[in-house]
Simulated assay, not measured.
Amino acid sequence: MPTAIAVTSADLALPPQDERTLPAVVLKDLDRRPLEQVLAEVTAVLEAHGHLVVVHSAAAPAAVERRLRTVRSLLETDRIALLTPGLPPLGVAVLARQLRQLASCDLGPGVLASAGRLLTHYIHAGALLGSVTRLDRIPVDLKAHAKSWLPGSQFAVVAHPQPQLVRLAPGASLAGPEFATWMLTAKGQLQSDWVTGTLGPS
């Protein structure tokens, strides 16, 4: 039986790319539901799949991580692996879907958890922003802060694997991966086709 790949929010469960991709187990509201209920849910997943790899965002409340560790301790099992990659939420969702694809190949849980750490290095995650004032993962100099006050300013940011920040202007570009890949986007509030019209083709 294949290892189950779980996420801690429905937002992290991207639709499968093909019919072989396993569905994600969504362990939602871990920090708000009674412990007994969460224990019963995780026990049922372990009984059905044998092993569980939980992929969750570091942006999730600390109480989620504590609850996961509590459940693993109470069950006294080594059949649960916790994976918290240093990726923004969309990057975590991409990683979880990749692990769901690999789990369909009947790889062992240790191999899947190790693959998660390796695959993290190949995911480039960023955003298109109207302001840099609330960035906390990327160094922002005073000049960029000043430009973010100009009406209509937009910035392209890469948070992982190497922090990058550029103000959108003719000729602006970001250093991308040095290997063939595909791009997944989530629509934001900014009205711009720079991501799909300029960044994607480049």
Rank of each mutant, 00 (worst) to 15 (best):
W149D: 10
L74D: 11
S202L: 09
R167L: 11
G188Y: 03
T133D: 11
Q189C: 08
F179M: 10
S73K: 12
W194F: 09
L87G: 07
L74A: 07
L27E: 01
P23F: 00
H49V: 00
A93I: 07
K28S: 14
L30N: 03
S148R: 04
D18R: 08
G91D: 07
W149T: 14
L87S: 05
Q162I: 13
H124D: 08
L135T: 05
A115V: 03
A40Y: 00
D11V: 13
V132M: 08
Q189M: 11
T185N: 05
P201F: 01
G188L: 03
S114P: 00
P85V: 08
Q98S: 09
Y122V: 07
A58Q: 10
L30R: 01
S192C: 04
L83D: 02
L27W: 08
L119M: 13
L90P: 09
P89L: 03
L74K: 13
P177L: 15
Q154R: 15
L142T: 15
H124I: 13
M183S: 13
V71K: 02
R72C: 04
A60D: 15
L27T: 00
D18A: 14
L174K: 08
D106P: 07
R32G: 05
E76P: 03
A10V: 15
G152P: 02
V38Y: 00
L87A: 06
A6K: 03
Q164L: 06
L150R: 12
P109H: 13
R117C: 08
P16K: 11
L135K: 04
T185Y: 11
L119P: 05
G50E: 05
P85L: 05
L99D: 06
A60I: 02
R117S: 13
G110P: 00
I5K: 04
K187P: 09
S131V: 07
Q162N: 12
P163F: 04
L35P: 00
V92D: 05
A63W: 01
G126V: 03
P85W: 00
V25I: 12
A96R: 01
L128Q: 03
G200H: 14
L165M: 04
P2T: 11
P89A: 03
K147M: 13
M183Q: 12
G197T: 06
L46N: 02
V54C: 04
Y122M: 12
W194S: 08
H160K: 06
Q37M: 10
T185G: 04
P89H: 02
P23M: 00
R134F: 12
D29N: 14
T181P: 00
S153Y: 02
G130C: 07
L119T: 01
S114T: 14
A115N: 09
S57F: 09
P109A: 14
G116A: 07
A115E: 14
K143Q: 08
R79H: 12
A13L: 02
L52Y: 02
S173T: 10
L12I: 08
G108W: 10
R67M: 15
V140K: 02
V25F: 04
Q98I: 09
A125D: 15
T8Q: 06
G176N: 08
P15Q: 10
S202C: 07
I5G: 01
E41K: 11
S104V: 05
R66N: 09
D29C: 02
G108D: 15
S57Q: 04
S202Q: 12
L142F: 09
S192R: 02
V166H: 07
P15N: 10
F179L: 14
